[in-house]
């Protein structure tokens, strides 16, 4: 099962990054903001993995995908941190809902980006 070139995956991660950042800047719902953060995290992780693969492909001409262990370890750490941040952000969302009875970011008085 041969994969296409790592460049396709780098492009994929850039598209995901654009989607995540678009979600962060344009959506008013706090849960959508959390989803945006997570999509951005996944995009950066994918970028790291595919850059590592691209590096292996340029130096050793191995066919098929291969990811170096250091990059994979960094991605695992980043995934775990993303989970922790999601949990913290969602607890803040629940608390904000208790105060405001809304999830709309525009209704939060001083929150200006």
């Amino acid at each position: 099962m041969g994969l296409t070139s790592p460049q396709a995956y780098i492009a994929f991660s850039i598209i995901l990054l654009a989607i995540g950042v678009y979600c962060l800047v344009s959506k008013r719902n706090m849960i959508k903001t959390v989803i945006g953060i997570e999509v951005t995290t996944i995009a950066v992780n994918t970028a790291l993995l595919s850059l590592s693969w691209a590096r292996v492909a340029t130096i050793s001409h191995i066919t098929g995908a291969m990811v170096e262990p250091l990059a994979e370890a960094l991605v695992i750490i980043s995934i775990v941190i993303g989970g922790a941040i999601a949990a913290l952000a969602l607890s803040l969302v629940v608390n904000a809902y208790r105060h405001y009875k809304t999830l709309d970011l525009k209704k939060l008085k001083r929150l200006r980006w």
């Binding site: 994969l3 995956y9 997570e38 996944i42 992780n45 993995l49 595919s50 693969w53 098929g64 995908a65 291969m66 990811v67 990059a71 994979e72 991605v75 695992i76 995934i79 775990v80 993303g82 989970g83 999601a86 949990a87």
Partner: peptide, 18 residues
């Protein structure tokens, strides 16, 4: 891509927990 452990963690933490 060959990143098996990253895939497992992605399933556990994102698809599972988040």
């Amino acid at each position: 891509m060959g990143a098996v452990y990253a895939s497992v963690f992605q399933l556990l933490i994102y698809a599972g927990a988040v």
